[in-house]
């Protein structure tokens, strides 16, 4: 009976997520102190923001009557340039990513090659497209070539990394079976590895096409071609109607690309 009575008095609290109370409170205090400090650095000029609200309203209203017409020649030229850069850089990026991805997979590449390829991937991923674009514009001059090179370089970091991870997680027994037949290295890759990673590689390439288009819209800010320059000009002149038109076109193209890649991925499955 006493056992039953003891259980009647038992309190219950949800066990905390971090059991060690010192670590728990330490983390909470750290987070709070950080938040206070970080928000403290945020110098908001409320008067300026208040002034801006009117312009913000104009910008949002501009979406109800986007102005495609008055700068149509600039918009269409920029848009075509963006699309051209997207297509070529994705194609070039895929072609270069495959050998680098193979080299960056620990299970098939020798160690020196592995480190070299991982290094290339790390640099490509760490540097934002726009930084790369600035450097390449400085070297190759203004125009879509710099944009093309930038996006190709960025594609390598993305595709090669994911391809390498994919290869590393392939089924070992399948590739070993191919090796056991006496296949050469290329035959081994072609029969043992490629069938396992191909569907995902195509899916990722489609996804990268989508990303490259979105990125191509900003390269114009630093003179590397594409719609970005037109958009920048529109903002500078407070021509929100034109800016709205450009943004609407970007959104529509991205939606179309997403739909297309969804369709292709569904067919691959």
């Amino acid at each position: 009976m006493s056992a039953v009575l003891a259980s009647e008095r038992r309190k219950w609290r949800k066990p905390p997520f971090i059991r060690n109370p010192l670590a728990r409170w330490g983390l909470i205090v750290f987070a709070l102190v950080y938040l206070v400090l970080a928000i403290g650095t945020m110098e908001v000029n409320w008067a300026r923001v208040y002034e801006g609200l009117e312009r913000g309203k104009q910008f949002i209203l501009a979406f109800s009557h986007p102005d495609f017409a008055s700068r149509w020649s600039d918009i269409s030229a920029g848009m075509i340039e963006s699309i051209i850069m997207t297509i070529t850089s994705t194609a070039a990026g895929i072609i270069i990513s495959i050998p680098i991805g193979l080299g960056a997979a620990r299970n098939i590449a020798p160690l020196p090659v592995y480190y070299l390829c991982r290094g290339i991937i790390a640099v490509s991923r760490a540097l934002h497209e726009i930084i790369v674009a600035i450097l390449l514009v400085a070297i190759f001059g203004f125009g879509p070539l710099a944009g093309f090179l930038t996006l190709s370089f960025a594609t390598i970091g993305f595709l090669a990394k994911l391809l390498a991870e994919d290869i590393e997680s392939t089924d070992r027994s399948q590739s070993e079976a191919v090796k056991a037949t006496g296949a050469s290295w290329l035959q081994w890759i072609n029969y043992g590895i490629q069938p396992q990673v191909m569907p995902r590689l195509i899916g990722l390439s489609m996804y990268r096409l989508d990303i490259n288009f979105r990125e191509s819209a900003i390269l114009g800010l630093v003179g590397a071609g594409g719609i970005g320059a037109t958009l920048n000009t529109a903002f500078d002149r407070y021509e929100f109607d034109t800016a709205a038109a450009i943004i609407v076109i970007i959104i529509v193209v991205v939606m179309a690309l997403e739909y297309l890649s969804g369709m292709i991925r569904a067919r691959l499955q």
Binding site: M42, E43, F59, E215, A217, F235, Y238, I251
Partner: peptide, 28 residues
């Protein structure tokens, strides 16, 4: 979701700098 995703943060920043002025706040 699609509008927010389609537009690069740099473009959002461009827009916000034009609307509320330059600074960390616009970036955030």
């Amino acid at each position: 979701i699609v509008s927010s995703r389609s537009i690069n943060s740099l473009i959002w920043a461009l827009l916000l700098v034009a609307i509320i002025g330059p600074g960390i706040f616009a970036g955030t």
